[in-house]
Design a binder for these strands. Structure first.
Length: 546
RNA sequence: GCGCCUGUAGCUCAGUCGGAUAGAGCAACUGCCUUCUAAGCAGUGGGUCAGGGGUUCGAAUCCCUUCAGGCGCGCCA
C-alpha cells in the first residue's frame, strides 16, 4: 500500500523538473486524515519557493491513478491525505488472507546471508537476566530478519579457553576437596556461587574421590573441562526453556587449536597493524579511530582476551555472510572501536559488522535493588525468573522496550503483573478467535475459503479500522526490519488486539445472517494470521484457549 | 576528566526520517457476566516531554549547554 503510494507520488512530483527528494509517507494520527499522508509538499516548498498548498494542488492534479483512491485531500499547512478506495483495500485484504507470505514478507533481505551472534555468555555460571534480554532481542531480531527474506544464522560464541574457565575449574576443584573433608583453600578471586558446589558434587557422584590426592596441575584440566561443559549444558537448557535455539556454537578453544589466533595476528602484521613495544605486541587500532592501541600479546608471552576476539571476528568475516551482527551488553560498549578496527584492518568495510547494544538490566525486588555479582554468586538466574513469572511474560517485558533503554526488572512487579501483563491481552485475542471459529463450526458454518467472503459487508467503523490496521502491518513490519527493532512488532500487536477486543465484544461474529457471518469470520481469520505472524517473530506462544 | 546510553502521566514504557490536538499499559475511581471465554468491555481523572538557549513554516524528535541516573575507560577477563 505504502509502496504503491510512494510510486504514485514520485510520478506526480516529476513535473517540477527537480531531482526527486525522499518522499515521506506516514500514518496519520487521526482517521479523519485518511489512510496515508505525505508532507512532501511542505518539504518541496523550500526548494521550489512556492506556497506548500499550491504545490500540493499541483501534485494532486498530476496523480494519474485516481481510481485507487476514494478521496485525496489537502489539509493543514500542506499535508496531502489519501484515502484508498474500498475496492483497493479489499483486494489487499484478500491477498493477506490468501497468501500471507506475499502480503507480509516484504522481501527486503532478498536472500542475503546474515549472521547474528548473541548471548555468548561465559560458561562459568548460569545465565542471568541480562543474558535473557540479549537472548530475547537476538532471537526476535533473527526471526524478524528471516521473515523479511534474509538467510539468518544464529551463533553463540563460547569462551571455553582462557583464564575464566580455568578459574572456574580451580574453584570447583577447591570445593571438591573441601567436600571430601580436605583442607584446600578456595581461590581468592574464584567463583563462589551455589552452582560451584553442585558441580563438585557431580564430580563426587561420577568419580568419587579419584582426584582427592591430585594436585591442581594433574587435575586442573579435568576440572576445567568437566565444569565448563556442565555449565554450557545448563546454558543450553535454560535457553531451550526460554524458547531459544542457536545454529552454531563457535568455540574459542577451537580457534586456538586451529592456530587461528596466531594466524590472525600474523595477518594483521602483514598489513602493518601489529608492532612491538615495551616487550609487548600491539594492535594499531588508533589507525581506525580507537583511543589507544591495544595489546594482543602481553610481556609474559600470554595472549590478552582481545587476541582470540580478533581471530573470532576474522573467522566470521571470512565466512560468506553479507552482514554480521553482534549483540552485546552495553557494558562492553568500550570494546566497539577496537573490534571495528579489526574488521577494517583486515580489509572489510566497517559496515559489514553491525554491533547492537542491549542496555543493562537491573534487578529489583519490591523496589529494592538485588545485588548481582557473578563471582560472589549473588545473583538471580534467568531460570529462576522464568520459573517465577513465566517465559512469555519475561520475553514480553524485554520486547516492549527499545534495546537502548535501561531496564528495571522488578520481580515483585513482574510477578504481580504477570496476570495483568499485556502479553496475555494479545494472546487472549488469538484465543478468542479460535473460540469463535470453533463456535462457528458447531453451528455448521463452513469456515473454509475466507478469501471468497464479501468484504463489502464489513461496513462498521470498527471493521474498517481493523482492516486498515491489518494492512498497516506491512509498514510496521518493514520499519522493524529496517531499523532492526523487533519491539515495534510488540507494540503493533498490542494496538491490533486493542481494536479487536472491543469489536467482538460489541458485535457478534456468528449471526443468523450467513453472508455477514462469513465476512466477519474472514476478518477474524485475517487478524489471526497477523497475530500469529507477530507471535512467531517475538517467540511467544499462541495458546488456543486461555 | 573523557566516551556511550538514558531522562515523556503516580509507576513501567511507546512515540517512525522533524509534521497535524503528545499515546498505551499498570495503579486509582464508576459501571457491565442469561450472550462466540470478564486474562474482556464502556467511562473518568492524570503532562513545564529534566532545565535553558538555538536551527525553521513546524521540535519530545536536530544542534549547543546545564543538571540527574546508568555503564565504560587495564599488558583483567
Amino acid at each position: 500500500m505504502k509502496k504503491k503510494l510512494h510510486y504514485i507520488i514520485e510520478g506526480a512530483v516529476k513535473q517540477f523538473g527537480i531531482p526527486i527528494p525522499e518522499i515521506v509517507i506516514e500514518l496519520p494520527k487521526e482517521d479523519s486524515f485518511g489512510d496515508l499522508a505525505t508532507p512532501a509538499a511542505m518539504s518541496l516548498a523550500r526548494i521550489l519557493k512556492k506556497p506548500p498548498r499550491k504545490i500540493a494542488e499541483d501534485i494532486v492534479r498530476a496523480i494519474a491513478e485516481k481510481d485507487v483512491f476514494e478521496k485525496i485531500e489537502i489539509a493543514g499547512p500542506g499535508f496531502i491525505n489519501f484515502t484508498f478506495s474500498k475496492l483497493y483495500i479489499y483486494s489487499e485484504l484478500r491477498v493477506l488472507i490468501k497468501d500471507r507470505s506475499e502480503f507480509l514478507r516484504a522481501d527486503i533481505g532478498k536472500g542475503k546471508r546474515i549472521q547474528i551472534e548473541f548471548v555468548s555468555a561465559n560458561p562459568t555460571g548460569p545465565l542471568h537476566l541480562g543474558h535473557g534480554r540479549g537472548a530475547a532481542v537476538g532471537a526476535a531480531l533473527s526471526n524478524l530478519l528471516s521473515a523479511a527474506g534474509y538467510k539468518v544464522e544464529k551463533e553463540f560464541y563460547v569462551n571455553d579457553a582462557g583464564r575464566q574457565v580455568k578459574l572456574l575449574g580451580l574453584s570447583v576443584f577447591a570445593r571438591y576437596n573441601q567436600l571430601l573433608g580436605i583442607d584446600y583453600p578456595s581461590p581468592d578471586d574464584g567463583y563462589k556461587g551455589f552452582y560451584i558446589e553442585d558441580i563438585a558434587n557431580r564430580v563426587i557422584r561420577d568419580y568419587g574421590n579419584k582426584y582427592a590426592e591430585a594436585s591442581i596441575k594433574e587435575a586442573g584440566e579435568f576440572f576445567t573441562d568437566f565444569s565448563y561443559r556442565l555449565m554450557l549444558k545448563g546454558i543450553k537448557q535454560d535457553l531451550k526453556e526460554f524458547g531459544i535455539t542457536f545454529d552454531t556454537w563457535q568455540s574459542e578453544r577451537e580457534l586456538y587449536e586451529r592456530g587461528e589466533v596466531e594466524h590472525s595476528i600474523n595477518d594483521l602484521k602483514e598489513r602493518d597493524y601489529i608492532y612491538e613495544e615495551d616487550g609487548a605486541v600491539w594492535f594499531r587500532s588508533t589507525a581506525f579511530g580507537d583511543d589507544k592501541d591495544r595489546v594482543v600479546i602481553k610481556k609474559d608471552g600470554e595472549y590478552t582476551y582481545f587476541a582470540p576476539d580478533i581471530a573470532y571476528h576474522r573467522n566470521k568475516a571470512e565466512k560468506e555472510f553479507d552482514e554480521l551482527i553482534d549483540i552485546w551488553g552495553a557494558d562492553h560498549h568500550g570494546y566497539i572501536p577496537r573490534i571495528q578496527a579489526v574488521i577494517q584492518a583486515l580489509g572489510y568495510p566497517k559496515e559489514s559488522l553491525r554491533i547492537l547494544l542491549v542496555q543493562m538490566v537491573s534487578l529489583l525486588r519490591g523496589g529494592r535493588p538485588v545485588q548481582m555479582s557473578k563471582r560472589a554468586g549473588e545473583f538471580v538466574t534467568l531460570k529462576e525468573v522464568i520459573d517465577e513469572v513465566g517465559a512469555d511474560t519475561t520475553r514480553f517485558i524485554f520486547l516492549t522496550r527499545r534495546p537502548d533503554s535501561h531496564l528495571e526488572f522488578d520481580l515483585e512487579v513482574a510477578k504481580a503483573q504477570s496476570a495483568e501483563n499485556p502479553v496475555f491481552y494479545v494472546q487472549y485475542a488469538n484465543a478468542r478467535i479460535n473460540s469463535i471459529f470453533s463456535h462457528a463450526k458447531e453451528q455448521g458454518i463452513n469456515i473454509e475459503k475466507s478469501e471468497d467472503a464479501d468484504f463489502g459487508l464489513l461496513s462498521l467503523p470498527e471493521e474498517t479500522r481493523i482492516i486498515k490496521k491489518l494492512l498497516a502491518y506491512q509498514m510496521a513490519f518493514e520499519g522493524a526490519v529496517i531499523a532492526h527493532e523487533p519491539h515495534r512488532i510488540t507494540f503493533y500487536l498490542q494496538e491490533l488486539a486493542g481494536m479487536f477486543h472491543p469489536y467482538y465484544h460489541r458485535h457478534k461474529v456468528v449471526t443468523d445472517d450467513a453472508n455477514l457471518t462469513k465476512s466477519r469470520l474472514a476478518l477474524c481469520e485475517a487478524v489471526r494470521i497477523v497475530l500469529k505472524d507477530g507471535f512467531e517473530i517475538l517467540g511467544l506462544n499462541a495458546p488456543e484457549r486461555m
